[in-house]
Design a protein around this nucleic acid. Structure first.
Length: 198
DNA sequence: TGTAGGATGCCCT
DNA sequence: GGGCATCCTACAC
């Protein structure tokens, strides 16, 4: 991990790359959320790509365009949050206008604001604080209010972090009912990082 | 207007 | 490994 971390948003252009490439590139980046309670941040260590109209596991499968998925049709770098059961999950919109693809942030390694994160989400072991998509949003205070924001602007943004030594790739999680799409190796993680969800 | 079903997490066997 | 909390969305009537 680099010791000269800059907590400044990446350029909008960073997000303008093919979705699978973006899912790769986001690993090691720093995710930052500023709230009235304080600022928390963590390095992205696990992502999943959702490839739009032809990906049965994607919300935008078949070009489904609803109030919920609308933001996926927007430009790369926008924030797509949605509620799953009792949790809020956060995605980075990718690809071009009218190409509803996205990258789900599945896990982060806590960096700053540890106290605030543990206050929001008390856990017995640190590794359980942010090792899942619903966990990290709660710890960082990411909610539906962030829907439609941009990851290249405060208060919820992504900065450069460290360059992962080795990246692993495999099938996505929690999409068993998505036919053949469940086997696509579109999940990426920092190999050996203990905050990866599984 | 009703209802089925999750890109989850947690607690129990 | 399985059940359930809990709630919004999508879609069927």
């Amino acid at each position: 991990m680099s010791d000269n971390i800059r907590m400044e948003p990446l350029d909008e252009e960073f997000f303008q790359k093919p979705t699978l490439e973006l899912a790769h590139a986001l690993l090691g980046c720093l995710l930052i959320k500023e709230t009235e309670e304080g600022t928390t941040s963590g390095f992205i260590v696990e992502t999943e790509a959702y490839m739009g109209p032809h990906d049965r596991a994607a919300h935008s499968f078949g070009n489904r365009r609803t109030k919920r998925t609308e933001i996926m049709f927007g430009k790369a770098g926008l924030v797509y949050t949605y509620v799953m059961h009792t949790h809020c999950l956060v995605n980075v919109v990718s690809a071009g206008i009218d190409e509803p693809e996205a990258v789900l942030i599945r896990a982060i390694e806590p960096y700053t604001g540890l106290d605030l994160m543990q206050h929001r989400r008390p856990v017995d072991q640190l590794k359980n604080l942010t090792n899942g998509p619903g966990k990290l949003t709660k710890a960082m205070g990411i909610t539906m209010k962030d829907y439609g924001r941009a990851f290249f602007e405060s208060p919820l943004y992504i900065a450069s972090g460290f360059k992962p030594e080795e990246i692993a790739q495999g099938p996505r999680i929690g999409i068993a009912g998505s036919g053949e799409a469940r086997d696509y190796p579109w999940r990426f993680w920092v190999k050996g990082n203990k905050f990866v969800s599984r």
